[in-house]
């Protein structure tokens, strides 16, 4: 129970939280705009990791330098995840825009099943080893017993993505359109915003962050399989709800809180019930504060 162990757990939780945050952002943005829990979001993250692995292996075998491999594979993973997110929205959610919410949710569950098994059939059901893409930095060696280089990489990438995203939403035209659409879809379309385009853009942005999360976690843990998106997706969803779904700072805060609690729980108490703990946490939050830490409470209108 010394201080070093504590700091290790603290940074472990922070890393875990950053990954959750990268996935939770997609959930919360989509929910903010079309009020749909995109069940298949975890699958986008998984596809990002798979694409990253496949492209990086091909490039490595072709004899490219490491840096080029990292950049190209990362870009491919992001592009493909965005394309999948975009297509998914067009096929499974767009025709159901005006249907009851239950229909869209069931369609999302179907999409999640479909993508998981698509990867399972086209690739493999085994765990694939993922190359550790991040090199060891020389200058970081004195601190690496507390925070390893991949963890540092994850943290700094997350921070960078957050800043980029905040900029996108606060200051660009599409960001403004997103905020307007999430407030009032009909009013936004009356003012000349192409709502369909905005929704597609939201899916694309959410998928991009999920893909980044996918590559980072895969190269940190060192293996991937088709099922990895499911638990990660559920946990990111817990984080999004914890912070208040629909709120972007809330998703980040919720993710860190979840990451820390999990890390300390497994570090000090028991690791058998790690997943159980996340679910119990979710149930407790929803009972006592359904709107989350930063969320606005919703009143039901007649």
């Amino acid at each position: 129970m010394d201080f070093e162990y504590f700091t290790q757990l603290f940074f472990g939780g922070l890393t875990r939280g950053s990954i959750y945050a990268l996935i939770a952002l997609g959930y919360t943005m989509v929910y903010g705009i079309i009020e749909l829990i995109n069940f298949a979001h975890g699958e986008i993250y998984m596809i990002g990791a798979f694409t990253g692995l496949i492209i990086s292996s091909v490039l490595t075998m072709m004899g490219m330098p490491t840096l080029a491999v990292i950049i190209l594979a990362g870009m491919a993973a992001i592009i493909y995840s965005c394309a999948y997110g975009y297509t998914m929205e067009k096929i499974a959610y767009k025709p159901l825009r005006n249907a009851p919410r239950l229909s869209a949710l069931i369609s999302a569950i179907g999409m999640s099943l479909f993508l998981q098994n698509y990867v399972l059939l086209a690739q493999t059901s085994d765990f694939l080893p993922f190359p550790s893409l991040v090199p060891e930095f020389k200058f970081w060696e004195p601190y690496s017993h507390i925070l390893t280089t991949p963890e540092l990489m994850i943290l700094s990438t997350t921070v960078f993505v957050m800043i980029l995203l905040t900029f996108l939403i606060k200051f660009t035209k599409i960001g403004k359109a997103m905020r307007a659409t999430s407030q009032d879809k009909i009013m936004a379309s009356l003012l000349g915003i192409n709502v369909d385009q905005v929704i597609s853009a939201t899916f694309v942005v959410g998928s991009a962050t999920a893909a980044i999360g996918g590559i980072l976690i895969a190269s940190h843990i060192g293996q991937i399989n088709f099922y990895m998106g499911f638990i990660a997706g559920i946990k990111a969803f817990v984080a999004a709800v914890l912070g208040g779904i629909g709120s972007i700072p809330g998703a980040v805060l919720g993710s860190f809180v979840l990451g820390w609690t999990e890390s300390f729980f497994t570090g000090y108490i028991s690791s058998d019930y790690e997943d159980v703990f996340a679910f119990i946490f979710l149930v407790v939050i929803l009972i006592f504060r359904p709107s989350g830490i930063l969320g606005r409470s919703q009143t039901q209108k007649v």
């Binding site: 929803l286 009972i287 359904p290």
Partner: peptide, 28 residues
């Protein structure tokens, strides 16, 4: 009882979580 207040999609997730809790407890 605790999920009475929740609507559609939240309910789906909480019940999903409940199902997983039961399974994980049985497993561990």
């Amino acid at each position: 009882y605790p999920v009475l207040r929740l609507r559609g999609d939240y309910l789906a997730i909480v019940t999903l979580g409940f199902g997983e809790i039961i399974r994980l407890v049985l497993e561990n």
